[in-house]
Design a protein around this nucleic acid. Sequence first.
DNA 1: AGGCACACGTGAAAC
DNA 2: TGTTTCACGTGTGCC
Lengths: 236, 236
Amino acid sequence: MQHQMEIENSELFQILSNTNHSFFPEPASSTMQQSFSGSFSCYPFEAFDAPPHEDKALAALRNHKEAEKRRRERINSHLNKLRTLLPCNSKTDKASLLAKVVQRVKELKQQISETTESETFPSETDEISVLSTTGDDGGGDGDGRLTLKASLCCEDRSDLIPDLVEILKSLHLRTLKAEMATLGGRTRNVLVVTTDKEHGVESIKFLHNSLKSLLEQSNSNAISKRRRVLGPNSIA
Amino acid sequence: MQHQMEIENSELFQILSNTNHSFFPEPASSTMQQSFSGSFSCYPFEAFDAPPHEDKALAALRNHKEAEKRRRERINSHLNKLRTLLPCNSKTDKASLLAKVVQRVKELKQQISETTESETFPSETDEISVLSTTGDDGGGDGDGRLTLKASLCCEDRSDLIPDLVEILKSLHLRTLKAEMATLGGRTRNVLVVTTDKEHGVESIKFLHNSLKSLLEQSNSNAISKRRRVLGPNSIA
DNA sequence: AGGCACACGTGAAAC
DNA sequence: TGTTTCACGTGTGCC
């Protein structure tokens, strides 16, 4: 703690020299919140010998002050840009804003991965799966909605697609992604959907049942009725 | 500016009272960067009458100091959380970090909308379109890759899908989304793909030509050869 | 009053 | 070397 005397001298020096007023012609209308305007005629150190290159030190201090102001403005401008990108007004706290940003980035990344990382290979067996891909690690935001990934693998019967669309519409499911691949006469459809605000969990069972009956209808009409096996991913 | 005298008095008061050292038993090893430890025996105002409830004011000051520290820690913790969510190490600047966050949020939102907001209605005419959906307004990040939205509308011939997949694979295009809808015996496929790091712009033409030959092959084999019109969106 | 949030200027450390 | 970034304590305005 040998530098405390330096600090003390520096602060006292600024008080004595009345920096902003006497030396630097800064705009007088600026927000000078911490400047001094009173006179110090009673101060005992009024006339003191000028240290060598004290103006250098003052200039450096002024540069430092302005650079710091620029840095603050840069950070705040980015913060304001973030305010426009998020559902939030301009009066939200800096900390709350950053919390919202963290949550939003997590949500977006999860949604991207849900709509992207589905590898679709039609298998030899008929399969239905409805998986709830809940973000389990960090967020726990839980705004009522749920993201489901439904997979349907069966004979290549493209006329089933309209029925599938009807199912989604009747369950009020919004389709984030619909992927379809055919291989050797078989097809796999992967649907990534978000549920309604309220009926999140029930949608899983309903969707699964609807897909099941769709698959049965498909097989009853299909030309080849060889394979009719439910895969291991299916939910009872 | 009638409050400047108050500020001056306040600061002088702290200098005189030597706050952190005399009154508050804070841990001596803490980072007391702006405290004073020198003696002020030469100061003319050494003995002054104690203001009423000055300890209250000092306690308030201490509360203020600690609250501000808590606020800083809250903000910095969110900032560090963001550091883990982005491709950046822990030594990136606060401002640069926020700039990256802004850019990333924009990218993610754009990617989401690209893979989501495609409305797929099969039309009566055969159509090919390959559109480059470049984020034109703010970012200009341009890391070489390009996001294309390819649309193919033709007779419902689901056996064309494998050829389509082959085309994408040969052009090194990564599929972000593949959407397919059928209506009245016709189908429309919308593919959202990202190009390779290098061959971004050429992929547009190549993809368009490949889809064109695919469509011609489809029509030459199709049962009904009624419609064979290229839509207005087609390139070259 | 009193808590909360912000901007400011400044010392210190890194490069 | 000076430039840049950070944490800190503080003044001030707004509930």
